[in-house]
Design a protein around this nucleic acid. Structure first.
Length: 616
RNA sequence: GCACCUGUAGCUCAGCGGAUCAGAGCAUCGGUCUUCGGAACCGAGGGUCGGGGGUUCGAAUCCCUCCAGGUGCGCCA
């Protein structure tokens, strides 16, 4: 065997050792996992096969002897030095220089070692999920950027991705808002989202104000005056609700004037949403909007089919889907005949799997909705709406995320107790980034010295937004985190700007070399110094990392990969002179390593939806 | 009451298909330094991995139990 054109040493070693295990155990039909892992410590080589202990145990063999047999059987010609058995039965492998260069060369094409596979079906990512007439807040930040990141990862792997922005654009709350604005004769062409948001909240409050309040007042023995006051409010509220219901009926029946006004509410909301996603560098446009209203005509059929299949039954006037393994049923029609969000979600699951033809559906939605989605997905499975045309089942996942908290560990609020709007937060981050970049541009030696305010602002925004996005994406999505701009925007340590800096620094080295990029890329890779080797080995893991991110749905893997890459690069750069290398060969070889590192950093940052400036 | 999530260095977190896993960043302290961009690099101190059991030769990792915090639990979305 000779070195193949793979860029993934783990995959290559996996194949070689897989074959060797079969030989060592004397059964050619065996196909056992050699458990190839990068070594933690360079003294143990580059990779290790950890399979011998477990295999020996299950077969009553001596692990070191089995390891020795595997080593004797494995063919690593053209790949690695002779492997060594260590400790209880670890097999340590050190790649040879030729193989290392060949693999770096193989990953150096446009795909950077990421294997694109065209698949029969697509992937749907449910992201953003804004509500019409409401401001975006930090919760939407997470649903938007985590979803966008995963969508980019799937796209990078060659999948067809459907980004679905499941707008809350339908139902009584929207109708109430609309009815209230029309009663007040507000000009819907000029209304701002702030006004719309106020109207929404007022309408909500009016409807609730309230029967609950009245009941509570009576129960706690409030005075007659207070009860009369509440009764009056209640009457107003009832009027508002009646008005809203009439509005909803007219809207539903397609009343042209109402439909037009309703669309204005959506337009107003989405203008702001797209301004926000623009600042965030998120790929989301009008073509990704598919609101609840889209599914409204399918809702009766959802209930009918569940009833017809015997999976749903009536209970206290409502229609529910019971489950065998839990008490809690899924409610799909209210006793008053109205539908619920579960009904819409069922219609959406079916649409995504059977109309959009997705074999993978990922819902990037607040973790508190876990129970709800479990019920919806289970119900969809019962009725078979997760089945693809070829009979296989789509993998449907709710990727729940935690809350964004303030420094008091409570949900993020302004000093006056209001919710932060997302746009305010981003503008602050952008200003902070610009302030930092501008300050450093004051240094006459800085590459940004003398740039225009507009250029500095563009870089500053990229840096500030990177800080916020990286902080969000670098942790376990499930976990709550504290929003602390001071920590996020620190340009040292595990932050977005640190990685951006490494990228800009390399871009600057390449520019300063005055070498044509084609000539750099024509040079061979030479890996001699320990720091070069560590960098090279980590570069080679890029493709596998992207794959694993898609499988685990964990953007944090990209973050820690890039953090390590930037760190290893800085170590390499410290130890190995590039522009001042001893000879022209070493100089070019190192420039090539710089070029590849820069491209991987840029590609990885792009997966996170983070801009990588060449100067900062 | 039931269910789910989270408890790892002072702070923010990674590691959770057993071994070479007690790690990173910040902060602190000490170095590198006539800077190939110091927004860098190297080093030090600092943790009975929430507590207790169990399985194993071996558990942060798997099982049980308890504690703390958070979040959900049919006619809102």
């Amino acid at each position: 065997m000779t070195t193949t054109a793979t860029a993934d040493p783990v995959a290559l070693l996996d194949r070689r050792f897989r074959a060797a295990i079969a030989v060592a155990l004397g059964d050619p039909s065996l196909d056992l996992d050699p458990v190839i892992k990068p070594s933690q410590n360079p003294q143990f080589g580059d990779f290790q096969a950890n399979c011998a202990m477990a295999l020996a145990k299950s077969r009553g063999m001596n692990p070191r002897e089995l390891a020795a047999k595997i080593v004797a059987a494995v063919d690593l010609s053209g790949v690695a030095h002779a492997p060594e058995v260590a400790g209880p039965g670890f097999i340590n492998v050190k790649l040879d220089l030729g193989a290392l260069s060949a693999m770096l060369g193989a990953m150096s094409d446009a795909d950077l070692g990421v294997v694109r596979v065209k698949q029969t079906y697509g992937v749907t990512v449910d992201l953003c999920g804004v509500n019409v007439a409401k401001q975006m807040h930090v919760g939407h930040l997470r649903a938007t950027i985590i979803g966008d990141c995963l969508a980019r990862v799937f796209e990078r792997l060659g999948r067809d991705v459907h980004r679905e922005n499941h707008l809350g654009d339908w139902g009584l709350p929207i109708a109430m808002t609309l009815a209230s604005l029309r009663r007040q004769r507000i000009d819907l062409d000029r209304i701002t989202l702030d006004d719309l948001n106020d109207a929404y909240r007022a309408a909500q409050a009016a409807s609730r104000d309230d029967e609950a309040g009245l009941a509570a007042a009576m129960a706690t023995g409030a005075g007659p005056h207070r009860i009369a006051e509440l009764s009056l409010q209640c009457t107003d509220a009832q009027i508002a609700v009646e008005d809203a219901k009439r509005t909803l009926v007219r809207l539903q029946s397609g009343d042209p004037e109402l439909v037009r006004d309703w669309q204005k509410l959506i337009d107003c909301t989405m203008r702001e949403v797209f301004r926000t996603t623009g600042i965030l560098n998120v790929r989301l446009g009008p073509e990704h909007s598919r609101g609840e209203s889209f599914f409204r005509e399918r809702l009766p059929k959802v209930v009918e089919e569940f009833l017809a299949s015997g999976l749903a039954k009536e209970d206290r006037g409502a229609i529910v889907v019971p489950f065998a393994d839990r008490e809690r049923p899924l409610l799909i029609r209210k006793s008053d005949g109205g539908f619920l969000y579960a009904t819409t979600d069922l219609a959406a699951v079916r649409f995504r799997v059977q109309d959009l033809l997705s074999d993978r559906v990922v819902y990037v939605v607040d973790g508190r909705q876990r129970d709800h989605f479990k019920d919806v997905f289970d119900a969809a499975d019962l009725i078979g709406w997760n089945r693809l045309p070829d009979g296989s089942r789509a993998t449907i996942t709710h990727l729940g995320f935690g809350a964004v908290l303030g420094k008091d560990k409570r949900p993020l609020k302004t000093r006056s107790g209001e919710n932060f709007t997302l746009i305010e937060l981003l503008e602050e981050a952008s200003e902070r980034g610009t302030a930092e970049v501008s300050r450093r541009a004051g240094d006459p030696n800085a590459p940004t010295h003398g740039m225009s305010d507009a250029e500095l602002a563009a870089i500053g925004q990229a840096v500030g937004i990177a800080a916020v996005k990286y902080a969000d994406l670098s942790g376990d999505v499930m976990r709550d985190y504290v929003f602390d701009l001071d920590r996020m925007i620190a340009f040292e340590g595990d932050t977005g700007p640190y990685i951006q800096y490494a990228h800009a620094r390399i871009a600057s080295i390449l520019a300063k070399s005055e070498a044509a990029i084609d000539s750099i890329r024509a040079a061979p890779f030479v890996v001699r110094e320990p720091a070069e080797r560590l960098l090279a080995l980590h570069l080679l893991r890029y493709g596998a990392m992207v794959q694993e991110t898609a499988i685990a749905l964990e953007p944090s893997r990209i973050c820690s990969y890039l953090q390590t890459l930037a760190n290893l690069f800085n170590g390499f750069y410290q130890a190995c002179p590039v522009l001042k290398a001893d000879d022209a060969t070493a100089r070019t070889a190192r420039l090539r390593l710089c070029d590849l590192t820069r491209r991987v950093l840029a590609d990885g940052l792009d997966l996170l939806g983070i801009v990588a400036p060449s100067r900062m």
